[in-house]
Amino acid sequence: MSLVEVGRFGRNEAYIVIGRLDSEGIMAIALDGNASIADGSQFFIPVRVMVDDEDAEAARVILGVDAG
């Protein structure tokens, strides 16, 4: 199992994306979701949504994002 990024999103949007993928049976996690929370810039740092490499293509289709 290897994690790959399927997109970068605003903090709140990233968790909506994770819920969408979960509803399709694809486990996803957010990285950087709490980055710089101490200095108040957490909403300016994109959150990376990561999935298993075997689920990446399906996740990108669901989300309508390109692999590049």
Rank of each mutant, 00 (worst) to 15 (best):
S41F: 11
V61T: 10
I62N: 03
M27P: 03
G25M: 02
S41A: 14
V65D: 01
E5C: 11
N34M: 08
F44S: 15
E57Y: 04
N34C: 12
E24M: 01
V47S: 08
E5K: 13
V4K: 06
A67K: 08
F9H: 04
L31E: 09
G10P: 12
G33L: 10
E57V: 07
F43W: 14
R48Q: 08
I16V: 14
S41H: 11
A14I: 04
F44L: 15
A38M: 14
A67S: 15
N34V: 12
D55P: 00
E13C: 01
M27V: 02
N12A: 15
L63S: 00
V51A: 04
A28K: 05
I37G: 12
D22M: 03
I26N: 00
V17K: 09
G10K: 03
S23R: 13
N12M: 12
R11I: 11
G33T: 11
G25F: 00
D32R: 14
I62Q: 01
D39R: 15
F44K: 15
V47I: 04
G19V: 00
E13D: 07
I26C: 02
I37E: 14
G19N: 11
A59I: 12
V61C: 08
D22C: 01
Y15P: 06
I26G: 00
I45D: 10
R8E: 15
F43T: 04
E54R: 14
F43P: 02
V65F: 07
D53N: 05
G64Q: 07
I62P: 03
E57S: 12
L63M: 11
G10V: 02
A58V: 09
V4E: 09
R11W: 09
I37P: 10
